[in-house]
Design a protein around this nucleic acid. Structure first.
Lengths: 359, 359
DNA sequence: TAGCTTCGCCGAACCGGTTCGACGCAGCGA
DNA sequence: TCGCTGCGTCGAACCGGTTCGGCGAAGCTA
């Protein structure tokens, strides 16, 4: 069912069919109707490949995310979903590429074979070769997150520094003096992931401002690591009364570790951080946290990218979001109960999940 | 940087370049080397659009998943990730389409404009117009899940019936006599989602076999709904001592509701179901559950689809997986604590959208 | 040395759209 | 009645690959 067939049946030339469908040149009403009728009859839809070849645009966006050796977080999932749906609004499809570096075969195909008109990059690093590469060749792209030098770039980002600062101030306001920071896995920090670095910066800065005693930790993206991390925190400084985390996947383990150590949240210990909002409500006690507006970030990224594609010479734009902290049930005033005396965790009562939310 | 440019610089014809690169006809070593040198020098990669137009294959697979009005579950996320990575192994890219029905614009584009060589469909229904449509036009596709008449189709699926049966038997073996079933949202059940239906079937069947007293519920995909659902369960029959769920997103709320009602898991109340394994370990107590091998399902789906694309006349194949239940900490023997007195449970016939399957 | 293969390469057609220049024809004014 | 304008349509070229038929030169046999 190609355009030639339509043309034959409608008794016109191929170009007339093309113009009738695109509206790029006037076509008489009679002819247009005739063509439309044949098109409807045969349920004709022009081939994407042919169109892409002819006009050099694929109507496809690339979404580049790091290969999830293990699993994705709720945040990342929300991104993907919102990007796809936002793109659909503009009649763009979304091609997924699990690429961590620009030498990945998938990334090469995306760009080299010109499969996409533009790209959205997730989980970027402060020094990101993919971003540098795209900037160098002038390929239209938008990053979710920003590099160390975001000037002149197109991006949407969470202000992780400010968010973590806000978490620290929230805890300090509640009277906490000894606070731990639970970051993403060490491997990601080493690799230079921006959220891990900027979050850590914010933590350090705010803690200094408030004169807090702090320790920072890296923690694997899973429950077991979270649990182990809490054990270390309480071993390193049993007087710790609160923690801030960027690690959504570890929160379940953090909670469990605290419960096993006999620390009740929020009575004895406060937990806060930066996670997806809807997810913060699934844990008990519900997590006081800066809710990541993943859907909005995804949508904004698509808006920006489409604008950039439509206006190649438009000056760079960006959005830096700083969602407020949603107060839920996982933080409370420090010192309501004196921290259990330092001794080894041998005193641990309760091996019970800490599910009690009784008053 | 097109093939003509390469040909000029190498001093050969375009067809020779094509053959040298594809290997579909012999080319002398000298010529091949010369061409390869120019290709390397200019970092030439053939245009995907042009190639797709010429040979009718896009090297792209479509992944059709339901638009997440709200959010995706960990399971779905794992699917997407594993499909993309498995496809990359075969040098296929993956195009995402958020389509619930075959009239969705995105779905139409995928097929009508021939953007993909084949499609993988997620979250299918017992009667699924997308599946019927694809079968009718002979479009190569594989479903994750199966319709009411899976014969002759290509699919990979979890045996939800068997999995839920196993959960019920597990609970019955522990002595539970009054068990509730927490299904996906009512809207999905009505729409005919196969996991919801087959899971319910398995529950009903196994409960009958074991002579259990049961009630079934639908539950929204979020924590608040889970909490409300537990409240209803305990109101409808306070003697209930266990539940089985297919609703991953609700588990956090179920746990919370039980805690608020003073039921300790697993001492007073057992919880089990079908969820992503890594996720089951993030909740406390860790969930005894049939672990959904999402990554394996995704990989198998891609394997099948690629096989179908490579051998258009191959007979249909499928994989039905029945992962074992992983015993964790959320189930235990019934009757450790006598259930609070029965109350008016018998009198409450429950107005659950006709979804209750009580004896 | 004539005749036949075989090898390696070329030219042209094709995939299915888009787009540009040109052309026929109707309507208009002079 | 002639010439001009402008609308509507057509034909051809092009996008960048793939593929088929054929042709010239080299190598072989008779």
């Amino acid at each position: 069912m190609n355009i030639g067939e339509i043309a034959r049946r409608a008794g016109v030339s191929r170009s007339t069919v093309s113009y009738a469908l695109s509206g790029k040149r006037p076509v008489s009403d009679d002819t247009r109707r005739k063509i439309q009728q044949v098109v409807d009859e045969l349920d004709y839809q022009p081939s994407a490949s042919a169109r892409a070849l002819a006009n050099g645009r694929t109507s496809t966006l690339g979404l580049v995310f790091p290969p999830a050796g293990n699993h994705y977080t709720g945040m990342q999932l929300d991104f993907i979903g919102s990007v796809v749906e936002a793109a659909a609004v503009y009649d763009y499809d979304v091609l997924l590429s699990p690429s961590g570096v620009d030498s990945d075969r998938s990334f090469q195909r995306l760009l080299g074979e010109r499969r996409v008109d533009g790209a959205i990059l997730m989980e970027i690093k402060l020094e990101d070769d993919r971003v540098d590469h795209l900037a160098a060749v002038g390929f239209p792209s938008v990053t979710i997150g920003r590099t160390a030098r975001p000037e002149g770039g197109w991006w949407v980002s969470l202000d992780h520094t400010a968010l973590v600062e806000a978490c620290v101030h929230h805890l300090a306001d509640l009277g906490h003096r000894r606070v731990a920071f639970v970051n993403r896995p060490e491997q990601l920090l080493r690799a230079g992931y921006e959220s891990a670095h900027r979050g850590l910066d914010g933590f350090t800065k705010a803690a200094a401002e408030r004169g807090l005693t702090v320790r920072t930790y890296c923690c694997g993206d899973d429950a077991a690591s979270g649990q182990a991390c809490v054990e270390r925190i309480l071993r390193d400084d049993p007087a710790t009364t609160a923690l801030v985390t960027l690690n959504e996947a570890a929160v379940g383990g953090l909670y469990r570790g605290l419960a096993l150590a006999g620390r009740h949240v929020p009575r004895d210990f406060s937990v806060t951080g930066v996670v997806a909002g809807h997810w913060a409500e699934t844990v008990t006690p519900q997590l006081t946290a800066a809710d990541v507006p993943a859907a909005e970030l995804g949508r904004l990224a698509v808006d920006l990218l489409v604008e950039r594609l439509d206006h190649p010479d438009a000056p760079p734009r960006h959005h830096l979001l700083t969602p407020p902290i949603s107060l839920r049930a996982s933080t409370g005033p420090a010192g309501a109960t004196p921290a259990p005396d330092a001794g080894p965790a041998g005193a641990t009562p309760v091996a019970d999940a800490g599910l009690d939310t009784a008053p």
